[in-house]
Design a protein around this nucleic acid. Structure first.
Lengths: 120, 120
DNA sequence: TGAAATTATGAATAAATCTTCATATCTTCA
DNA sequence: TGAAGATATGAAGATTTATTCATAATTTCA
């Protein structure tokens, strides 16, 4: 499927072919990007970072994350809907925790990236 | 720093304390979330996924990603500004490649997450 | 130099999203 | 049962962001 627009057809052909071969379906790309989307907001990321230290109830999350009760609750709902965190009611409180262990690794990578770049 | 709102003070105290101890500064959280933000859009993620197979010029990226020239170019600019990809002019073409090796790992984690969840 | 190829950019529109305010729901306990 | 604590939710407003259209800029080559 050569085109006339690229002067470097030979060098690029391989990469293009490989990319097309196992290109993910649009639906899959959307699923992956949704995961990253969950961590792309500072408020949500703070919540996840806090929960990575241990389960916590909403009140403590608002305290640790320095947010409002409503704001934290709204973000928790989004994180819950996307299976990032899970909730467990304990009396008056609702205790949240990380629901997806992959998230831990992904966030750790993000932290590593930060450390690496601030060191530069 | 006890509070009267949580019935599970004892169980949570440790987690709250730990979370507060090495909580990241807001600025750091923003930096990390910005990285995830770059991957949180399907169009950008497609570009990154394609470039992970090898460097490519804009024309081929639009082809592989099934996007418009303008759209791809706009997203490339955002990725460039955020040091996710880098550009190198070769004649009429501009060849893009991954600028940050951490990104590779982070995206791979995202892919692994997808595979893991679709297998369920 | 001028035309064609390739990429970049500015503006505008539309869509998604975060935050806040007010209020509802649920639980415990007196 | 009713009040207070704790969390959830709906709606509104404001900001961000993605996409598209038109056009500019850069490079090659005849």
């Amino acid at each position: 499927m050569a085109n006339i627009y690229c002067d470097h057809e030979k060098e690029h052909a391989l990469a293009v072919q490989r990319a097309k071969e196992d290109i993910l379906m649009h639906e899959d790309v959307e699923k992956i990007s949704r995961i990253f989307h969950m961590l792309a907001d500072p408020s949500r990321l703070k919540i996840v970072l806090a929960l990575m230290k241990g389960e916590m109830c909403v009140y403590h999350l608002t305290e640790v994350c320095d947010g409002t009760q409503s704001g934290v609750s709204h973000q928790l709902r989004i994180l819950r809907d996307n299976k990032i965190v899970k909730a467990k009611r304990l009396g008056k409180n609702v205790e949240y925790s990380i629901a997806d262990e992959h998230i831990r690794e992904i966030v750790e990578m993000g932290k590593a990236h930060l450390l690496c770049n601030t060191a530069e």
